[in-house]
Computed example of a mutant assay.
Amino acid sequence: MKTETSQDSLISLILPIALIFGLDLLLSLNVEGGGEGRETTPLEIGLKVIVGYLAAGTEIAAAVVIGTAVIRGIAAYLRLLFSRSKQHFDATQGVRLQLGRVLALGLEFTVASDILRTAVAPTRQDILDLGAIVLLRTLLNYFLEREIQQGEQRRLPESELDRSRR
């Protein structure tokens, strides 16, 4: 049991460092002449237009999802702020966890949008840029998911205590 905990702590230390190192490496690479002299076909141009609209739609979906969650989170927090409940901290943690889950979903939408943008005839620089962006968003998502899991683990014993008191 103890070795699993030490392995988990080692992984949770090494993984972010490796991701940050990889991101730094990708951002430091700059490939020149990744395909500027190549001829584009009418089909490729048409696909780029369609994929551009799909990527824009995905970005709009991400904005709507995140914006709606922020508005709902503010409304829920204000309700908690003006209520007479003594469970303010626990309920605030719930609002925070719910917002974190939706932010993780929004990050997934933005990653999908970036992948769509580089789907049709990408240059080497496009692929490196995509790698850096996906790596950064994966790093953000990793820490967000970890925070959500820790928050849920903290809430679980509290809810079990509340049930046993009843």
Score class of each variant (00 low, 15 high):
residue 160 E to W: 12
residue 52 G to V: 12
residue 7 Q to T: 11
residue 60 I to R: 06
residue 43 L to D: 11
residue 102 V to R: 06
residue 124 R to Y: 00
residue 34 G to D: 03
residue 79 R to L: 05
residue 70 V to C: 13
residue 117 R to L: 13
residue 164 S to C: 10
residue 152 E to S: 05
residue 129 D to N: 08
residue 77 Y to M: 09
residue 41 T to K: 03
residue 51 V to G: 04
residue 23 L to R: 01
residue 99 L to P: 01
residue 131 G to V: 01
residue 85 S to W: 03
residue 15 L to W: 05
residue 109 F to M: 07
residue 92 T to C: 03
residue 97 L to W: 02
residue 26 L to V: 02
residue 3 T to K: 00
residue 149 Q to A: 12
residue 17 I to P: 05
residue 124 R to Q: 07
residue 97 L to V: 11
residue 121 A to W: 08
residue 52 G to F: 05
residue 133 I to F: 13
residue 93 Q to Y: 01
residue 87 Q to T: 14
residue 47 L to C: 10
residue 45 I to K: 10
residue 102 V to W: 08
residue 127 I to S: 11
residue 60 I to H: 07
residue 43 L to E: 04
residue 9 S to Y: 05
residue 137 R to D: 03
residue 10 L to Q: 14
residue 51 V to K: 05
residue 32 E to K: 14
residue 25 L to C: 09
residue 82 F to D: 10
residue 4 E to T: 11
residue 90 D to H: 05
residue 46 G to K: 15
residue 46 G to T: 12
residue 35 G to H: 01
residue 166 R to K: 15
residue 124 R to L: 13
residue 80 L to K: 04
residue 122 P to N: 01
residue 133 I to M: 12
residue 120 V to H: 07
residue 2 K to S: 09
residue 7 Q to K: 11
residue 158 E to P: 00
residue 112 A to L: 15
residue 17 I to C: 11
residue 12 S to T: 08
residue 71 I to M: 00
residue 84 R to V: 07
residue 81 L to W: 10
residue 166 R to G: 12
residue 80 L to D: 10
residue 17 I to T: 09
residue 147 E to T: 09
residue 12 S to V: 13
residue 129 D to S: 10
residue 86 K to V: 03
residue 32 E to S: 15
residue 136 L to K: 04
residue 8 D to V: 06
residue 127 I to D: 00
residue 28 S to Q: 14
residue 23 L to A: 01
residue 61 A to G: 05
residue 71 I to Y: 07
residue 47 L to N: 14
residue 116 L to E: 14
residue 117 R to F: 07
residue 51 V to T: 10
residue 70 V to F: 14
residue 7 Q to G: 02
residue 83 S to I: 07
residue 27 L to Q: 12
residue 154 R to Y: 12
residue 119 A to C: 10
residue 52 G to Y: 08
residue 117 R to G: 14
residue 22 G to E: 04
residue 112 A to R: 01
residue 103 L to N: 02
residue 66 I to Y: 10
residue 136 L to Y: 04
residue 147 E to S: 06
residue 100 G to E: 04
residue 103 L to P: 02
residue 11 I to V: 08
residue 132 A to C: 06
residue 71 I to P: 07
residue 62 A to K: 00
residue 15 L to D: 10
residue 8 D to H: 14
residue 63 A to V: 11
residue 3 T to F: 10
residue 23 L to S: 04
residue 21 F to D: 01
residue 91 A to K: 15
residue 70 V to R: 00
residue 135 L to M: 15
residue 80 L to H: 11
residue 140 L to A: 15
residue 27 L to N: 14
residue 90 D to V: 08
residue 160 E to T: 11
residue 125 Q to D: 12
residue 65 V to M: 04
residue 158 E to I: 15
residue 12 S to I: 06
residue 141 N to D: 05
